[in-house]
């Protein structure tokens, strides 16, 4: 058991500062990455997927949990909502994988001055994020397309496309826009940016203090939400007939299919409303809790 002085404790307003800082910076960078054109060389796409170095640097220098959640929220607000590209449930899954990967990367680093640790953490963060999103994409096609086995070559081609995308993102975006800038920025900012927020720099012996119970609750809620999002997405994916595959629902039920889909839509809307109402009642006195520890 460590004594209190060795731990990296933050006041609730410092957590909020980290949250706001990470959100606005990563949000700004997201606007650029949406606008930078892509270079397509055959199946290989040289694109600036995201400026991962910003959340990585902030997660390494500050408390990883708040920096990670802030960055993910910044992406949703600036990159999706403001540009009108908000895809609903799909964003939930992106939000979860991204904040999880950044949180893990930030927690890995014990000493921000060690270049080896910073570099390993940066690459690990990118690999975790890309791996999660590729697996989710493959799984979506796997579950969503019922005649998966029936279409020859589909399984291989999906895995191939996702695999090439994964390698490309890790090797190109990962090295150029995560590893190198993080290695450049972390030693320069360490000890300079923390006093601006009124806190001590992270040192070798100080571990970020996290409430274990809260992290566990967050993780469980995250997994459940992710599963729901995943299920709903594959459901909707199976609804659109890609090429000549048909879900067959319309043939079986005729006109009834429309009413089934209206029913589903109404049900989903009603469920969301009910959940919101319930939460409003129970959480009226404890909302706004997240960055306030």
């Amino acid at each position: 058991m460590k004594s209190k002085a060795d731990r990296y404790t933050l006041t609730s307003s410092q957590k909020m500062m980290i949250f706001v800082l990470s959100m606005s910076l990563y949000g700004l960078s997201n606007m650029f990455t949406e606008l930078i054109p892509k270079l397509q060389l055959g199946p290989i796409e040289l694109s600036v997927e995201y400026f991962a170095f910003i959340p990585l640097t902030l997660c390494i220098l500050f408390h990883p949990l708040y920096a990670a959640i802030g960055a993910a929220l910044g992406e949703v607000i600036f990159g999706e909502l403001m540009l009108g590209q908000f895809g609903g449930l799909g964003e939930l899954e992106k939000f979860l994988t991204f904040s999880f990967a950044m949180f893990v990367a930030g927690s890995m680093v014990r000493d921000p001055r060690s270049r080896l640790q910073v570099g390993t953490a940066a690459m690990t963060g990118v690999v975790i994020h890309q791996l999660c999103s590729s697996l989710v994409d493959i799984g979506k096609v796997w579950i969503g397309v019922e005649e998966f086995e029936a279409v020859p070559g589909l399984a291989e081609s999906v895995v191939l496309v996702e695999g090439v995308g994964f390698l490309n993102d890790v090797l190109f975006s990962g090295i150029l826009f995560a590893l190198l800038p993080t290695l450049y920025l972390v030693p320069r900012l360490h000890g300079k940016i923390e006093p601006l927020l009124g806190m001590k720099p992270r040192e070798r012996r100080m571990r970020p203090e996290t409430d274990r119970r809260r992290v566990a609750v967050l993780a469980i809620v995250g997994v459940v939400l992710g599963l729901i999002a995943f299920g709903a997405e594959s459901l909707s994916e199976s609804g659109f007939e890609w090429g000549s595959w048909d879900s067959g629902l319309a043939d079986h039920l005729g006109d009834g299919a429309i009413w089934v889909s209206i029913g589903a839509a109404v049900l989903v809307s009603a469920l969301v409303l009910a959940v919101v109402m319930l939460r409003k009642k129970t959480a009226a006195d404890q909302s706004g809790e997240l960055p306030h520890g």
Binding site: F86, G88, S236, G239, F240, E241, A250, A257, I258, S261, I262, A264, A265, V268, S269, V272, L273
Partner: peptide
């Protein structure tokens, strides 16, 4: 919320 969810289930 309606227009974000409903179109996915309509063909």
């Amino acid at each position: 919320l309606f227009f974000a969810v409903a179109p996915w289930f309509i063909s």
